[in-house]
Structures are given as C-alpha cells and as structure tokens.
Nucleic acid binder design. Structure first.
Length: 428
RNA sequence: GUGGGUGUAGCUCAGUGGUAGAGCGCUGGAUUGUGAUUCCGGAUGCCGCGGGUUCAAGCCCCGUCACUCACCCCA
C-alpha cells in the first residue's frame, strides 16, 4: 500500500521542533513592537497579477517558482513573498491616510516551487516588516539596528550585515548598459544562464557563484560608483548612522537582489554558514520607493525586509530550552482521584501530565522522566485513604510527604524555589 | 531545470553473491507500589519500490521514487 506523503518541499513541524519556531516568532513580535511596528496579516492567496506587477515579469520567482492556479475566472497564486500583499493591503485599506508613517510586521507561510535544499523549502515561513512613508536614511538605519537586535536576542552567532545600494531607476538603467558593455567581451567563459541573463537581467550576474561568471565579474564596474548625488548622500548618511549606532556592516559593491522593486538601500544579513551551507542568507531587504506608486497608490517611499524562519531556527537550534512539565501524576488504581488532583493543580497554573493508562508505577515514572517533569506524585488507593502523598523531586531524587489538600501550595513552592542540586539550569 | 551522494529496526549506522546485524531507544523482569545506574529477558525489518542477471541478490545491472548536497535562484 502506498502511504500518502507530504508534498515535496513541504514539511511537518513536529512537537519537538515547534518550540524553536515559537521562540523566534515571539522574540520577533516583541522586538518589532518595541520598535513601533504593529502586526498585520494578509491572505496567503492573492491575484497572480499582484506578484507579476510587484516582483517583475522577468524574475525567476515569477517566471518559474510560483504556485499559480485558475479558480473559475480568477488567476490566483500562493504568495511567494510578503511585501506585495502588504503593499496591496496598505493601498486597499488607505492606511496611508491615517498617519504619515505606517510601520507593520508580519509572519506567515510563503510558497516557491524551487528545488529543495537545506534551509530552503517550497512552503516556508517568513518574518518581515515594512515601513511606509519615511524616505530618510534614518528609517533604514533604525530598521537595520532593530534587526540586529532581534538576531542577537535569538542568539544568531556572528550576524554579518552586508550593505549596498542600487540607486534609483535612472541610475540603474545607465549602470545596466555599462555593465553589459563590460561583460559582453567575456561572454565565452560565462555560464549558460548568464549568457541568457545578460539580455534579460544583467545585474544578477554580479552575484553568480559560477567560477566563470566570477572571473568575468572581476573588475566589473560597481553601481556604487555611479550613484547620483541624492542616492549617494542617502547611502553616506545611512553609513554614518550605522557607525554611530555601532552596527557592524560590510559594503558589498556587487550586491543585487532578485526582485525588481528595490531602489537605493539594499541589505542582507548572513550567519551560521557552517550550519546552513549555501542558503546562509538569514534575511534580506531594502528600500522600494517606487513600488507603492507602481501598484496604483500615490508615490510613497518604503523600506522592508524578510527573514527565513526555517533558517533562523537552523542557525539557533542549540538555544532552545526543551519544554518541561511541572508535575507528573502517576496513578495506581485511583485514576479518578488522580485526574481530580491533576486538574486541581492545573487550576493553580501548574502544568500537569496525568497517567491513567494503568501501567506499572515503574513505567509511569519512567515516562515522568521522559517528559522531563520537575515533580512526580504517585497517587494510589493508599494515598487516597491516608490523604497524604509523596511529592518527588525527580532531579534531586528527594521526596517529601505532603497532605493532598496542601499539594498545590507545596508544588508551587517547590517550582518557585531554587533548582534542586544536580539539575541543569535552563536559561531563558 | 542541471549535476553529485544516500536509501537496511523508531533513531544512528555495520553488512565480502550463500541463514539480516550492532549501539541507542522501546518493552518485561530482578524490586508482587517508586524514575537516572546495574543485571537478565523480549518485540520491532516486503533491506525504498519495480524489473533483470544468477542455482542463489541487502550486495551486480536497468528503471523509478524519496531524501540530501551543490548549481540556478532565494529567506
């Protein structure tokens, strides 16, 4: 019999791994709110046209990675990224009329039909944020410093901020021509993809990993050298702010991005390369001053970013404290009383696992260890008739006799007390 | 989409064409009601799937699927 399997590239998030995801999601919400962002949620399904217009027709995402389908007379797509939907919602709900600056963050599933790899899935999750209405380099710097704080808070080892600029539309068009002029003589040694890309999207060649492409890009012109005066002063100011904030960064003269909507500031943060291999970009983003207007709104400067949740989890796995149960109630005969005791403790905010399987006390206590319970209580007919049971500290291997009526108070006191000797201290 | 690697017990993996294994985990007992340790016992396998070669295939050949790494691209 052929058992049903999950769709390729779409994984199950099992109970033992979910805490690692939750920890990061919660830290993200906390840090973003602290910086004045508010959460918003948008649909997973959007009109296909939204992504084509926002991301760009000749990008790889739109050309071959979207999950698109026809539903009756609508052309729909599972969102491959978050910015387009947020911009659409910003316009549709006239959020720009409520306030001059709108700062939002979001988290959710995204879909791209790519070949899978470590840290790269077809259904994956992004944490992202957008700032609308603030054209200043201060907005860029404030977003970046917030992100660095976030990454530090979740324990990313040595995040590497990479900074670039691709100027405005006119600058980019001019640069594109000079880059094509530079690369065309070297076409012979370049990859097949790049030979095609020189016509469609030549900037992308700059971050190719193909050895021939890299050699060809040696000494290529950098867009940083042809920025116009406004782009240049924006970039310079951003760097001054980052320096003042003590945010370390590296300028990459060849940094480009796959989506068409970016302008001026571009950034990426890498980290934990040893764990992530080729997919070590934890987070990427930049300014997209033209997109809101492109999608039919009034001209509104904006900047945003998106981080890959799965990658953040891989990068910080070792920081997750395993979930614990406070009290494990083992039963011997008196299952009904065990349930009652368990629920009484729960009503005091104590997490309780109650074992009513009828297994041996030994097997039940083994399970108490397996769920990493702090305390265990064996409740049998004897305890019920005596009105007294042992509260066992599993780590310390000690045991105190406690009246059932005072069990909740005793357990609470034990949980709030210092960890027993020999117990591994769990950092938050 | 292109190119490599790997598929054997729940997990990590040995296995020279000739009777499928180890460690860990799970489970029962030693202790008739007390968990980490120790000792003794037990269960778990269409060896990914389908063909082929052979007296004989986990092992060789072909195909296929899955996983994985890199490229492409990206978070």
């Amino acid at each position: 019999m052929t058992t049903l399997r999950s769709v390729k590239g779409m994984k199950d998030y099992l109970p033992k791994e979910v805490p690692a995801y939750r920890r990061i999601e919660e830290a993200f919400a906390r840090v973003m709110q602290r910086s004045g962002f508010r959460e918003m949620r948008t649909p997973i399904v959007e009109p296909t046209a939204l992504f084509v217009r926002a991301i760009g027709e000749v990008t790889d995402v739109v050309e071959k990675e979207m999950y698109s389908f026809q539903h009756h007379d609508e052309a729909l797509t599972l969102r491959p990224e978050g910015t387009a939907g947020v911009v659409r919602a910003y316009l549709q709900n006239n959020l720009g009329n409520d306030e001059p600056v709108t700062k939002v963050f979001y988290q959710g599933a995204m879909f791209r039909a790519e070949r899978t790899q470590r840290g790269r899935y077809r259904q994956f999750h992004q944490l992202g944020a957008e700032v609308f209405g603030d054209p200043s380099p201060a907005a860029d710097a404030d977003l970046l410093v917030t992100l660095v704080v976030f990454l530090r808070e979740i324990g990313v080892s040595s995040p590497e901020v990479i900074l670039g600029s691709i100027g405005g539309k006119a600058t980019r068009a001019a640069f594109r021509e000079s880059l094509v002029d530079f690369l065309t003589p070297k076409l012979a040694t370049m990859s097949e993809e790049s030979k095609r890309r020189i016509l469609t999207n030549p900037l992308r060649i700059l971050d190719s990993k193909h050895p021939g492409d890299r050699a060809a890009c040696e000494g290529a012109p950098s867009i940083l050298d042809v920025l116009d005066a406004d782009d240049q002063s924006h970039f310079d100011a951003l760097r001054r702010y980052l320096d003042a904030l003590a945010v370390p960064y590296r300028v990459d003269r060849g940094l480009v991005r796959g989506l068409d909507y970016y302008s001026r500031t571009l950034f990426e943060i890498k980290g934990a390369t040893e764990k992530l291999g080729a997919g070590d970009t934890l987070l990427g983003g930049g300014r997209y001053d033209g997109l809101v207007e492109e999608l039919g709104g009034r001209a509104t400067p904006a900047i945003g970013f998106a981080a890959g949740l799965e990658r953040l989890v891989i990068a910080t796995e070792e920081n997750v404290a395993p979930p614990r149960i406070d009290v494990f109630v083992a039963s011997e005969g008196a299952v009904g009383r065990a349930l009652a005791l368990a629920n009484e403790l729960r009503s005091h905010g104590i997490s309780v696992e109650c074992d009513g399987r009828g297994a041996s006390v030994k097997a039940q206590l083994r399970r108490a260890n397996a769920v990493d319970a702090r305390f265990a209580i064996v409740l049998g007919d004897r305890e019920v008739s005596d009105g007294v049971a042992d509260l066992k500290d599993l780590a310390a291997r000690t045991s105190t006799s406690v009246a059932l009526s005072g069990m909740a108070a005793a357990a609470k006191a034990g949980l709030e007390g210092p960890p027993a000797a020999g117990e591994q201290a769990v950092s938050s």
